[in-house]
Amino acid sequence: MSPAALDLGGILTSSGVTAAAIFLWIAAVIIASILAKYNRKGPLEHLMRHGFI
């Protein structure tokens, strides 16, 4: 991985990178389900509706 990705390529193996990706995906799903439960907009939708993008 590049230095922009916190230079994790020199630290993590391919299985470590896979585990990190799965963890981030699960975290995103949990956050999305919490936002849906409380009928809240996500950050991108909020920015798009208020004309920032």
Score class of each variant (00 low, 15 high):
12 L>I: 01
23 F>K: 02
15 S>K: 09
15 S>M: 13
25 W>T: 10
7 D>N: 15
49 R>D: 15
14 S>I: 02
53 I>D: 02
26 I>Q: 11
27 A>H: 10
4 A>C: 03
52 F>G: 00
5 A>T: 03
6 L>K: 07
41 K>Y: 04
46 H>L: 14
10 G>V: 03
46 H>A: 11
8 L>N: 03
30 I>V: 15
19 A>V: 09
43 P>K: 01
16 G>A: 08
53 I>F: 06
23 F>V: 04
5 A>I: 03
28 A>C: 13
8 L>I: 10
32 A>S: 15
6 L>C: 01
43 P>S: 10
28 A>Y: 12
49 R>E: 15
41 K>I: 02
27 A>K: 07
46 H>Y: 15
19 A>I: 10
29 V>P: 00
33 S>Q: 14
40 R>V: 09
27 A>I: 09
53 I>R: 05
3 P>N: 08
24 L>G: 03
45 E>S: 15
1 M>T: 06
28 A>M: 09
35 L>C: 10
15 S>P: 00
24 L>A: 08
45 E>M: 12
42 G>Q: 07
30 I>P: 01
52 F>C: 01
16 G>L: 06
22 I>C: 04
6 L>H: 05
49 R>P: 02
37 K>E: 09
17 V>N: 02
11 I>C: 09
49 R>S: 13
4 A>Q: 04
10 G>Q: 10
42 G>L: 05
21 A>F: 03
12 L>S: 00
53 I>Y: 03
27 A>R: 07
33 S>E: 14
7 D>I: 01
6 L>N: 11
51 G>K: 12
25 W>S: 11
10 G>I: 05
48 M>Q: 13
2 S>Q: 09
4 A>S: 14
32 A>V: 13
49 R>M: 14
29 V>D: 08
22 I>A: 11
7 D>M: 03
33 S>K: 14
5 A>G: 02
48 M>W: 01
26 I>N: 04
23 F>L: 12
13 T>L: 07
44 L>C: 09
41 K>R: 13
21 A>T: 05
27 A>V: 08
28 A>I: 04
31 I>V: 15
32 A>N: 13
11 I>P: 02
28 A>L: 11
49 R>V: 12
12 L>Y: 01
14 S>Q: 10
33 S>T: 10
30 I>A: 12
11 I>N: 01
21 A>M: 04
35 L>G: 00
14 S>R: 10
1 M>I: 13
13 T>Q: 10
10 G>E: 09
1 M>Q: 08
1 M>N: 08
12 L>E: 00
47 L>K: 12
11 I>L: 13
3 P>E: 08
8 L>T: 07
50 H>V: 09
6 L>G: 01
51 G>Y: 00
40 R>Q: 15
16 G>W: 10
21 A>L: 11
50 H>T: 05
28 A>Q: 07
13 T>K: 07
8 L>W: 02
9 G>Y: 03
2 S>V: 12
2 S>F: 14
10 G>M: 02
51 G>E: 05
20 A>R: 00
48 M>R: 07
27 A>E: 06
22 I>D: 08
18 T>S: 10
41 K>M: 14
37 K>R: 14
22 I>F: 05
32 A>C: 14
15 S>V: 02
35 L>I: 04
39 N>W: 06
13 T>A: 13
8 L>Q: 06
17 V>M: 13
37 K>Q: 04
39 N>Q: 14
17 V>G: 04
4 A>N: 06
31 I>G: 00
16 G>Q: 04
28 A>V: 04
35 L>N: 03
47 L>R: 12
6 L>D: 05
22 I>W: 02
33 S>H: 06
